[in-house]
């Protein structure tokens, strides 16, 4: 049986982790590769890097990060942020990313998703959707980190992206992001039930029950979280144990000992 995936997300800027694990005594807590190794050994099911580097010209640092991670972590890696064209995708895949997430560029030109899926296969094309509630039961998508409204309906957009070849939808509630108030279950469920591809729920996780709700009520195939893991509130193992106790299928594998320098 397919397991619900737990995906820690790291924000990377100019090749450095912006908020990272701060409860382990890593030699360099800002090193994304060290963070990735930590989560690899902690039993995370996938890892996500979100590049928030302001300038497109400074993105070479990101490729170095991806390359370094692929050398040491044998787990699936999704990289998003600033992916604008086929060449950006090619570079990330060649560096060692398994999936690439497209957000603003898909809104600017939806055919880009079809071109990317045709070229690299749907399995590596994730479309990231940032949505906000407008009226009850309706959500609109936003770009540029929630600043720019697009007038597009999130559910319709999700369906269109899947039809164009997105292999997965990374769905973030801009209303909930950073609130620790839980996923927007209505949004998650509306999109997950509308599309045939997996949906990753994101935005708002503050407790382990939120993870359970995202799957049970939101129908997500995977849950993404940042701060609850980075700030040491919970470990990936805590999250899995809690979800398993709630009756959700999660992958429990005997994990390797903690990495050197770790002091949980």
């Amino acid at each position: 049986m397919l397991k619900i995936r737990i995906i820690p997300c790291l924000d990377v800027k100019d090749g450095r982790v912006v908020k990272g694990v701060n409860f382990v005594d890593l030699v360099d807590a800002g090193d994304p590769v060290a963070q990735a190794r930590f989560y690899d050994q902690a039993g995370a099911d996938e890892l996500c890097f979100l590049d928030i580097t302001a300038s497109h010209e400074d993105r070479d640092t990101l490729y170095d990060v991806v390359r370094g991670t692929a050398e040491q972590c044998f787990m699936p890696l999704t990289v998003g942020g600033g992916v604008r064209n086929v060449d950006d995708i090619r570079k990330l895949l060649l560096a060692g990313a398994d999936k690439v997430s497209i957000n603003t560029a898909a809104v600017a030109r939806p055919e880009f998703v079809a071109e990317a899926a045709e070229k690299f296969g749907s399995q590596c094309i994730v479309v990231a959707i940032d949505a906000k509630a407008t009226v009850p039961g309706r959500w609109e998508i936003f770009t540029h980190g929630g600043r720019n409204a697009t007038g597009r309906d999130a559910v319709v957009w999700g369906e269109r992206m899947a039809a164009l070849g997105a292999g997965e939808i990374l769905l973030t509630s801009m209303d909930r992001d950073g609130t620790k108030g839980g996923f927007d279950i209505g949004l998650t469920r509306a999109v997950a039930d509308a599309v045939g591809v997996p949906v990753i729920a994101s935005g708002g996780v503050g407790t382990l029950d939120h993870l359970v709700e995202g799957v049970r009520h939101g129908h997500a195939s995977a849950v993404l979280a940042a701060s609850i893991f980075h700030f040491g509130t919970y470990s990936v193992a805590d999250a899995k144990a809690h979800m398993a106790a709630a009756g959700l299928p999660v992958r429990m594998e005997p994990t390797a000992p903690a990495p050197e320098g770790a002091n949980p």
Binding site: M1, K3, I4, R5, E46, S122, V197, H219, S221
Partner: peptide
């Protein structure tokens, strides 16, 4: 209780 997705993506035993 909810649909099985395609692609089959993730960890399976």
């Amino acid at each position: 209780d909810h649909r099985l997705k395609v692609p089959h993506m993730g960890w399976n035993e």
